[in-house]
Amino acid sequence: MTNRQNQHIYMSTLIEARGLIKDFGDFRAVNNVSFQVEAGEIFGLLGPNGAGKTTTLRMLSGLLTPSGGEAIMNSHSMQKEQMAARRSLGFLTGDMDLYRRLNPRELLMYFGKLYETPKAELNARVDRLIEAFGITPFVDRHCEKLSTGQKQRVSIARTLVHDPKIVVLDEPTTGLDIMASEFILQFIKKMAREEGKALIFSTHNLTEVERLCDRIGIIHEGDLVYLGDVAGIKKQTGQDTLPQAFFELVKEDKMATSSL
């Protein structure tokens, strides 16, 4: 690889998980997980429940400190330069809800202020987000009175209020109806393709993965058991569909583990 190519990769790599390890006491929840996500790329992080996905995402966001390895966000180490790394990150998991007694506008303004967005810029950005996510009809309603779909729109708008280069969405379409899901999926696509953001998208819905993700990573029992594109996993497992390939891979891994 030439120096120029190296430079190109360095410039466009926005997310880098370098050998992430997380131990909870004697239990290793995540074992040496490494991957990179480029600008404009949608990366799908998959795995069964309890596989270590959320723990990996929490390490990327700085909510958990890795027992080993490092998370790099937009060239800043989440462990060593936390503020700079967090400034580049918009993060949403299923463990995050909205403040019940604030309305969407107040909520977006609150988070914008926490990220020290200048006032005029923040006002304009919040207006844009409210319009883009179709929040206007319920913008003055307290969040506790919003429907699941409305809440999720506000939550994703919240992750974007400081215009981050990196967006991590953990199961953003869970519990949503087909219309609300489609809205969110289209937005994810737009964020990556038009705005050049790096996106990590974690979901159990493999149809969504096939539609959106450029590459995927599959975590099983703490290990990253696959890293590549959707076509690659089908080829590797000899299966026609992603769900079949996924089951095959997880099954193989289990058998390999049990034979040890």
């Binding site: 966001s61 700085g62 909510l63 503020m83 967090r86 400034r87 990150l89 993060f91 998991t93 463990d95 995050m96 809800d97 909205l98 403040y99 019940r100 988070f111 926490l114 990220y115 020290e116 919240r158």
Partner: peptide, 14 residues
Amino acid sequence: ERRTLQTLFTTTAS
């Protein structure tokens, strides 16, 4: 319980 605390800890507020 209302799942709003973690969000605050992913922002740049120390």
